[in-house]
């Protein structure tokens, strides 16, 4: 599998605090990569550098290189909004807008210039189908997105992210606020989506990483301890700290 995202010797500072230390990771295309590690280890921070959501936190400073498809996304030539269109994101808390289900999904396409009603209808339908939500909501697309259940809201957020046709989907502990059944649905969905999208997920749940991902990256205190194929990492970790973590000795 060819690497779509290359992170090379990345250092990230919040003011004087160094949140990421010399991180180098390659993320393969059309596969699921999981970031695991105890809280505060920098896994979410790294995820948020991939679509430059960290830009909005004042005092953030970055050294090193992150390339998506060969382009350094922190170089002056990259247009942040277009980057974020290509690198979608799903957040920890389901965060649909206080608008209708339809308007939520159509938000991104409208933003990027789709005006025709017919085209929007098609995008909404295909995105909701891709997020396995179409069957549940197709009869009340005009209802407020806040009226559906948390699990449905999260799948709506996935549909909303898919509607702008990203290549990469970032999931920031996307199941941690959900019940087990909804979690399972999202995991199944991720499995289906990986054939078309490159998925990077942060999870606090090792078993989830083991269940769904192809590659796992283990973080500790802002450093990448090791990363490899998920099976290998969980069955035969090369670092003692990884073994301690996955066997539940800390974290």
């Amino acid at each position: 599998m060819k690497a779509l995202i290359e992170i090379d010797k990345l250092n990230l500072f919040y003011g004087t605090f160094q949140a990421l230390k010399n991180v180098s990771v390659e993320i393969p295309q059309r596969a699921i990569t999981a970031f695991i590690g105890p809280s505060g280890c920098g896994k979410s921070t790294l995820l948020r550098t991939l679509n430059r959501m960290n830009d909005m936190i004042p005092g953030t400073r970055i050294e090193g290189r992150i390339a998506v498809g060969g382009t350094d996304i922190y170089s002056g030539e990259v247009h942040v909004e277009t980057l974020r269109k290509k690198v979608g994101m799903v957040f920890q808390q389901p965060n649909p807008f206080p608008k209708s289900i339809y308007d939520n999904v159509a938000y991104g396409p409208r933003l990027h210039g789709v005006r025709s009603k017919k085209q929007l209808d098609e995008i909404v339908e295909s995105s909701l189908k891709a997020a396995a939500l179409w069957g549940e909501v197709k009869d009340h697309l005009k209802r407020s997105a806040l009226s559906i259940s948390g699990g449905q809201q999260q799948r709506l957020c996935i549909a909303r992210a898919l509607a702008v046709e990203p290549d990469i989907l970032l999931m920031d502990e996307a199941t941690s606020a959900l019940d087990p059944i909804s979690t399972l649905k999202i995991e199944e969905l991720a499995q289906e989506l990986k054939d078309k999208y490159t998925i990077v997920m942060v999870t606090h749940n090792m078993h989830q990483a083991a269940r769904v991902s192809h590659q796992t990256v283990f973080f500790l205190n802002g450093e990448v301890v090791e990363y490899s194929e998920t099976e290998k990492l969980f069955s035969d970790p090369s670092d003692q700290r990884t073994e301690d973590y996955i066997s539940g000795r800390f974290g």
């Binding site: 498809g69 060969g70 382009t71 030539e77 290509k86």
Partner: peptide
Amino acid sequence: TNEALRSE
């Protein structure tokens, strides 16, 4: 500059 993103 962004051949890759575009071609994907």
